[in-house]
Amino acid sequence: MRSFYGTELPNPLMLGTAQYPSPAILEEAFRTSGAGVATVSLRREGAGGAGQTFWQMIQDLGVHILPNTAGCHTVKEAVTTAQMAREVFGTDWIKLELIGHTDSLQPDVFQLVEAARILTDDGFKVFPYTTDDLIVGERLLEAGCEVLMPWGAPIGSGRGLNNEYALRAMRAEFPDTPLVVDAGIGLPSHAAHAMELGYDAVLLNTAVARAGDPVLMAKAMMQAAEAGRLAHEADPIEARDMAEASTPVIGKAFL
């Protein structure tokens, strides 16, 4: 199992902490699923320690905290937010998100690379939310990132893996880099799909938080991600065009 900046995660599920009906349900979703990483939006919940009670609840979950720069549109904003997050949460992990397009929330990969360089130089361990573009991935690694988080589909869309081919190519291109499908996962089958491709984790929020029963959905996502990982490790069979009988017929006695 690939480690994330030297940290082994207990399982392949990372969950966001926004949009749950209540903090109590959020907590239950983490406890029931056992998700090992919680992403937190610092920008949205206000600066200057104003979200303290809520943040304390997240910290009390006892999981790895991955603060994010959600809602940032410029390098400067993202860098400032990351620095603030380091102060508030006492972690050098940062999920770097730089939004380039309001409707698709597509990352602005040019600014992303620039911000990633500034932050890694400053000692951050950057988890960049990126597209499935190989060259961008390469530039991010050059900038000092040791993890890549390509999208499956636009944030909150729940469409699953829009471009399986590109995600496969990314896995093949970066065999030693931990890869996380971040965004677009709506169903457990999507999570399993990503893990079957050999990804190291899935990161999702809306699919769980906005489900009718977030606790149940978190559990389903965990089981699916685990199943996908086991399947990948088990080396699945190749699909083929014709049937292949599982019981040999040659040599069978004629009665």
């Binding site: 903090p23 949205r44 919940e45 206000g46 600066a47 200057g48 104003a50 979200g51 809520f54």
Partner: peptide, 8 residues
């Protein structure tokens, strides 16, 4: 109305 987990 907004609903933000902030105490500011």
């Amino acid at each position: 109305a907004t609903t933000i987990e902030s105490e500011d």
